[in-house]
Amino acid sequence: MKKVVRKLFFVWNYEKEEMWLNAMSAQGWQLKSVGFARYEFESGEPREFQYRMEFLKWMPKTEQARDYLAFVEDTGAEVVDTYFQWAYYRKPVTAGEFEIFSDKASLIEHYKRLLFIFVPLMLLNIPIQWLSGELVSSGADYLVFVRWTDYVNLAVFLLLAVGVGTLCRRIRAIRR
């Protein structure tokens, strides 16, 4: 039996997504494929697999990523699916504890990969905000449009700032 669930997670809270996938597994729903806010499950044994996620260093189709994913599979894990730069892994529960990172340094490095994406995106919002401010002061008559995009831009900036803040807090907590 198959089941499709639509659900949205913030990427900086990917541990919640992992926990949810493991909770689904506990109920006997085993992940089959992942899309944008879309998860397809297949019914299986409850608690058959443990799931883990990783934000890869490379896009999944690149030679480096393929080498890496083959390496992970050699260690007894299965690459269930990849989506954008995310990999979804699982390992039978009987194989024991399943982690992708086993020391502080590599865990921090994983969070930094995400920061590397989000910090530039967040900073990009500043010139955009400034540019739309310029348009307003130049007295353009599409003022209403500019105002509206200002709010969207600000909302995106704040959301990204929350993400960056969350990731920085995580890194600090690991270092301690």
């Binding site: 390496f71 992970v72 260690t75 990172f101 590599s106 490095e109």
Partner: peptide
């Protein structure tokens, strides 16, 4: 000492 796949690869 356990080495997880991602850590070991790095």
């Amino acid at each position: 000492v356990s080495l997880a796949a991602g850590t070991l690869y790095g």
